[in-house]
């Protein structure tokens, strides 16, 4: 990730030379993540182990992927409330395998692409507001998931369980999935499509005048969102070794929160999956820290909200004191 390289500031350079701006969003997201990681390590020193990290990452993996799905749509100035519905459909399709082959995983992903395409067509060519479209398709997808499986149950293919919980060459698969996601995002961002997404999110009208096929880009963003949300569903099903038609709802607000905490703007055009992954992992760490406290439910509720608020308020305060315009 090029953002990771802080601009070198050699003293010899003439001052007039334009410096690359410091990627504040990334610095802030990294800082929040590191603070939480240190707190968690202090509470649970046993965590400093690749296997343990893999286990922790496993539980956060569905959120990471759903948040990544949300990011794709937010980048083009959209919003996808149906990611939870797509995730739920994917878990029940995967779990319908009843011990069958990995073809069920492919089917779940294909269904995710199809549902994302439906959202994209309604928002792009038909021209409805993303919020109202995905609010409606959210309940439709939840209904479809309930049709397929009325209660939690089923058995996902062994391949899904292995994908979520196994390891490859000594490295936990959960780590590999996150790395793969980041690499895919870097390639995407460098591609023509990536540039077009940012262009559409920044100013759709100007992008259109520049010859960007705006509606096609919007449709593609929703399709990618559907694919990623379905992948989250496959992994969720693998993790729990079952399917759940109601598991998706809890991810909807959290996915938007992760996107925003990462620093991706809901107004489009700014941010990316790298930031979102850091934020989703931060939220996972908060959950882990709170669980380690082993306290009353009100304490854990207060602690998770309080931690979140302290971190984002501190970030805001630092931004303000350093004189940056707060967005």
């Amino acid at each position: 990730m090029t953002d990771l390289q802080l601009p070198a500031a050699p003293a010899a350079r003439p001052r007039a030379r334009r410096r690359r701006p410091v990627p504040w969003d990334l610095v802030a997201a990294l800082a929040i993540f590191l603070v939480l990681a240190v707190v968690d390590l202090v509470l649970q020193p046993a965590l400093a182990d690749l296997g343990q990290i893999g286990l922790l990452l496993q539980t956060g993996l569905p959120l990471v992927l759903v948040a990544a799905a949300q990011t794709m749509v937010v980048l083009v100035r959209g919003l996808d409330l149906s990611v939870g519905g797509i995730l739920a459909v994917a878990t029940v399709v995967t779990a319908s395998a009843q011990g069958g082959g990995p073809g069920w995983i492919a089917l779940a992903l294909a269904v995710g692409i199809g549902l994302g395409l439906l959202n994209g067509l309604l928002v792009g060519p038909v021209g409805m507001q993303p919020f109202i479209v995905t609010l409606a398709t959210w309940t439709i997808f939840d209904g479809i998931a309930l049709k397929i499986m009325s209660t939690d149950g089923g058995t996902p293919p062994p391949a899904a369980v292995a994908l979520a919980t196994g390891e490859t060459a000594g490295i936990p698969n959960s780590v590999l999935v996150v790395v793969g996601l980041l690499v895919a995002w870097l390639l995407l961002r460098r591609s023509r499509f990536g540039h077009r997404m940012v262009a559409v999110g920044t100013d759709a009208e100007r992008a259109r005048l520049n010859g960007t096929p705006v509606r096609a880009v919007v449709v593609a963003a929703f399709v990618l969102s559907g694919l990623l949300a379905a992948f989250a569903g496959v992994l969720s099903s693998g993790l729990t070794a079952s399917g759940s038609p109601t598991i998706g709802d809890r991810y909807i607000l959290t996915s938007v929160a992760a996107v925003v905490i990462g620093g991706t703007s809901l107004l489009g055009g700014r941010g990316g999956i790298g930031l979102t992954v850091l934020a989703a992992l931060s939220l996972t760490l908060i959950n882990d820290i709170v669980a380690a406290m082993n306290a009353d439910v009100w304490v854990t509720t207060a602690a998770s909200s309080g931690l979140l608020l302290v971190l984002v308020l501190t970030r805001g305060l630092v931004a303000r004191l350093s004189g940056r315009r707060v967005t």
Binding site: V260, V312, R320
Partner: peptide, 11 residues
């Protein structure tokens, strides 16, 4: 503090 509304009000 410039916190995003969705995060602030959720917290």
């Amino acid at each position: 503090f410039g916190v995003a509304p969705i995060v602030m009000t959720l917290g």
